[in-house]
Nucleic acid binder design. Structure first.
Lengths: 293, 293
DNA sequence: GTTTGTTACGATTTACGTAAGAATT
DNA sequence: AATTCTTACGTAAATCGTAACAAAC
């Protein structure tokens, strides 16, 4: 009994055997393989030893495959073909998953219930050849950028129906009206920022329009001054607790919206975008498709 | 740019990559592969270099395949599977084409129009694991051996219909009544041997029954004595010309029969017999299936 | 004599393990 | 501190080509 299994070392010998069979002899294969007859002879002898059969008759009288040799040749070609296909397959995946993915998002997407940094890390690991470009933008900038296609995918709250976009719900965000602790919010000016909830509250007339603020931190600063009320995400207000005692105005309802991944409807998503979308949805707390891996 | 193609050396690395992916890390694969981490690391680095992609993220943080890695893993498993199947395939063929093939034949099957030695040589090359057993037998012995299954296949002339046997025509053999040159054959005793043509001629009563002979050479000797007539194949009579002037008796018709390969009908032929039969028929001058190789 | 494949031997190449280093948990 | 992977280096093994040999045409 010799060795029982073929290894990749034997595959080399099999490749040489295939070449010899196609060339019709060792001397002819010598040129195509750029290998000495001695080596070819050894290789074929090794395979025959492992397989326990004679693969071919050879000698000055000519070259002829045995029945076993024909079977071995056929199977070896399948293996070699599969081997050569690996690179093609990988190249295809590599080609699809390369380039740039441009992500636009509003502030404060990062929070404890949705691990966007973790998703980005996972994405970078899964598709290391894709350059990821992430930028924080305002609500209006995001819509413009999506239409202009200067970003590929957006992450923001969904407030309106828009037939131009596809929405993929990710998690729920709750915003409330906040005021400095101990201050009576009644009639205080509302800090203005371009956001649907601000518009909505101003429309009620309960609060006059106050100073404009750009960015959640600016809003928080102005609220903490005690002169204004402002709308903030609950989780963000909790985070900036240390800077001042921001408390929700109890008389006011909670604004709930669904933070979603958004792509333009008329634009077929690239493989890179599709993979990112898939990861985002896998981590979603809303869809039932929240499986692991 | 690095190397463009995967070779069998890389397949070894791919097998190690597969094992690492299944084990879920290098340290775990270390045991299953009986290989040091250092080697595993090198192997996977090499494959990544050839493929130009990162196959997996690894580190103290854990092990995770990239999308390219998943594709590579899948294809590599196909190649490895094909490789492992080679031995199974060859073993099957080897198992079928081994053992003994027992061939019974009459005298003088070898002649210029049918190259039986060449067929036997080709058979030995195609199926080197089959032990070939060839024996010359008389007509009666062949029939008996076929029925008793002490031979697997016979080669002899076909004179009768026999529902117990399958006949595969190979070539035409012509036999005639011969006499020594210058001798009047009329009324001379016919050399007896157990053969249908002898029985047939004796039944006509033109010649009395002469001495018994065993073997064509014995018949030729007796004819050359000038005292008898005898039936011989034309080609054989031509070969022994030098031993004496044997000439055909012109008044007598030529006996024609079809030399055939014969197997017992109720016995399914083994793969070894089937292959031999196939070779015999390939060289046949009678059937239209006489193609090359 | 020429062609074809096999075996022997020395030189190069390759691969492995040990051990030390770097990075993460 | 413990784990996981990577890199460096010396040693062991496999592979190749040259060359001598045997066999068939």
């Amino acid at each position: 009994m010799t060795k029982h299994f073929l290894t990749e070392r034997n595959l080399k010998s099999l490749r040489i055997f295939c070449a010899a069979a196609e060339a019709g002899g060792f001397s002819a294969a010598e040129r195509t393989l750029a290998l000495s007859k001695a080596s070819i002879s050894r290789h074929i002898r090794d395979v025959e030893e492992v397989l326990g059969v004679k693969l071919c008759e050879r000698g000055p009288g000519g070259f002829r495959l045995t029945v076993s040799g024909i079977a071995a040749l056929k199977q070896a070609q399948i293996a070699l073909d599969a081997l050569s296909r690996i690179k093609l397959e990988v190249d295809e995946v590599k080609g699809l998953l390369s380039g740039v993915i441009r992500i636009g998002m509003t502030e404060h997407i990062i929070n404890k219930q949705y691990d966007l940094p973790g998703i980005l890390r996972q994405y970078a690991q899964l598709a290391p050849d894709v350059t990821t470009d992430v930028r924080v933008m305002t609500f209006a900038q995001i819509n413009h950028a999506l239409r202009e296609r200067t970003i590929d995918i957006a992450i923001r709250g969904r407030y309106e129906q828009d037939h131009l976009f596809h929405f993929f719900p990710l998690f729920e965000e709750r915003q409330r009206l906040f005021v400095l602790e101990g201050i009576n919010p009644q009639g205080l000016p509302l800090i203005y920022r371009p956001h649907p909830f601000v518009y909505e509250l101003l429309a009620t007339g309960h609060h006059p329009k106050g100073p404009s603020a750009s960015g959640l931190e600016a809003v928080a600063c102005l609220i903490a001054s005690g002169c204004y009320v402002g709308i903030l995400p609950e989780t963000y207000a909790a985070e900036v607790w240390d800077y001042g005692r921001l408390v929700p105005v109890q008389t006011q309802d909670c604004y709930v919206n669904i933070v979603s991944a958004i792509i333009e409807k008329n634009r077929p998503p690239s493989a890179a975008v599709e993979l990112f979308l898939q990861l985002l949805q896998q981590h979603s707390c809303l869809t039932p498709s929240s499986s692991k891996r």
